[in-house]
Simulated assay, not measured.
Amino acid sequence: MRILLLGGTSFIGRTIADEALHSGADVTLFNRGRTNPGLFPSATRLTGDRDTGDYSALRSGSWDAVVDLSGFFPRQVTEAMEALGDSVGRYLFISSHAVYERAGLAPGSDESTPRRAPLQDAEDLDEETYGRLKVACEDEVVARYGERATIVRPGKVAGPHDDQRGLTYWARRAARGGRIALPGRPEQPVQVVDSRDLARFVLRLVEDERPGAFHAVGPAEPVTLGGVIATCAEVAGTEVEVVPVPPETAPPPFFPLVREKPLWPGQQRDASRARAAGLPTTPLAVTAADVLAWDRDRGAPPLGHGFTPEDEARILAEHAGGH
């Protein structure tokens, strides 16, 4: 199996590349060569830049499948497809749950849920444009490849090398134990998918040549944000007390795994189609333990999101009686 990854050296792409190489696939990485350039010496490397439209390195060679990890704007997807021409068999696009309309969304919604209106020409990624741009990207892939197009819409991805910092923050915080400030509701549903499960699923879809869209969400059993924190404490061997505090205490731009509307059903997607297609389900406790071990091994550097210990102590004192 010859696989081309557009990206492939940070978090999700890194995990997919690692899984593909371990499976014996012939892996080619296309990126700018700036992030983790020493990774995967056995992979073929092609240098280009999607921001400037430099896809010249893709105009020679052929692959059984391409996995597009870094397509955020429709022009990026279109330019990549034009450069590749007929040199790839299947185009698998990593999309997002942000593609869906939120109005009228019900818990347990599947891949047929109405999507937002596509957006072609925005230059900035924000809450308003991100999902609509992904819709347009999906449409471009399906229009070009038809039955050779596969769309994967992951939930919150967690695992070692997590540069999204969602579960990493809670694993680290729960390991300290004690009273934990949560600027949201403990009963908020959360769908966390292990990055290694996502990687294995992507490779399975490619190998099986499966078309269509899939929700890559987990874990296997429903879990709340309070349950996530409790699981992180359990694997760390600590005792914690979750203390809800006002959402306005959370620093911008977001707080790890906390939704602005905590009970929004977007955190309750139906994963049955993906499960039937082979999506594996690593237990949340295993994911949390592996994230904590990885974070400790790298020295637990600043995350840039969530509360600092000093801010959390102050917020608990101000909003929870300080005891």
Rank of each mutant, 00 (worst) to 15 (best):
D197M: 15
T47L: 13
R296P: 09
D124H: 10
P154G: 10
G184I: 02
E111R: 02
V141P: 14
F214V: 04
D26W: 06
F201M: 06
S96C: 04
Y169S: 01
E310A: 15
V152H: 00
R176N: 08
V141F: 09
K134A: 04
A103L: 03
F214T: 01
R172K: 09
R34V: 04
V27W: 15
I12H: 08
T249L: 10
Q268N: 01
E140D: 11
L284F: 08
R90D: 02
G108Y: 08
P37A: 05
A277S: 08
D18V: 00
D64N: 15
T281P: 02
A313F: 02
L21N: 06
A317N: 05
L125V: 05
R50G: 09
L58V: 02
L6V: 11
G108L: 11
A175F: 15
Q268P: 02
P219M: 06
A274F: 13
N36H: 14
F72N: 07
F11V: 13
E138D: 09
S195Q: 12
I229P: 06
Y100I: 06
M81Q: 13
L6H: 10
D295Y: 06
M81F: 09
R196A: 04
T168G: 11
A122F: 01
V190A: 15
G177M: 06
V88Q: 05
L225V: 05
F30V: 09
R153S: 05
F214L: 07
A313Q: 13
E248Q: 07
L92V: 12
G7N: 07
A199E: 12
H323F: 10
G89K: 01
A288C: 11
A199Y: 15
D51G: 15
H305D: 00
G85C: 07
R259K: 07
Y55S: 03
R179L: 14
V291K: 04
L303Y: 10
H323I: 03
E147K: 13
F72Y: 15
L105Q: 03
A122E: 09
D124F: 05
V242D: 12
T249E: 02
D51R: 15
G166H: 13
A98H: 10
T129P: 03
D121E: 09
D208T: 15
A103K: 12
A122R: 12
V135K: 01
H305R: 14
E239D: 08
A83Y: 14
D64Y: 11
I315M: 04
T78S: 13
R102E: 01
G89F: 10
Q268L: 03
Y145L: 05
G24A: 13
G85N: 08
A285C: 08
P301C: 07
V245I: 09
R14V: 13
F201W: 07
S87T: 12
V152W: 00
V202R: 13
R204H: 06
P107V: 05
V217H: 02
R132C: 00
A171T: 12
V88M: 09
D208S: 14
P246C: 08
P247G: 07
R314N: 05
E221I: 00
L203M: 10
L303W: 14
D18Q: 03
G104N: 01
F40T: 02
V245F: 08
G33H: 06
F11R: 13
L203P: 12
P256S: 03
L263K: 00
S56K: 09
L205T: 03
G218F: 14
A136G: 03
T78V: 12
L105H: 00
A271W: 00
T113A: 13
R172W: 15
Y145W: 06
L5I: 11
P265V: 07
A277V: 07
S96G: 06
Q191I: 04
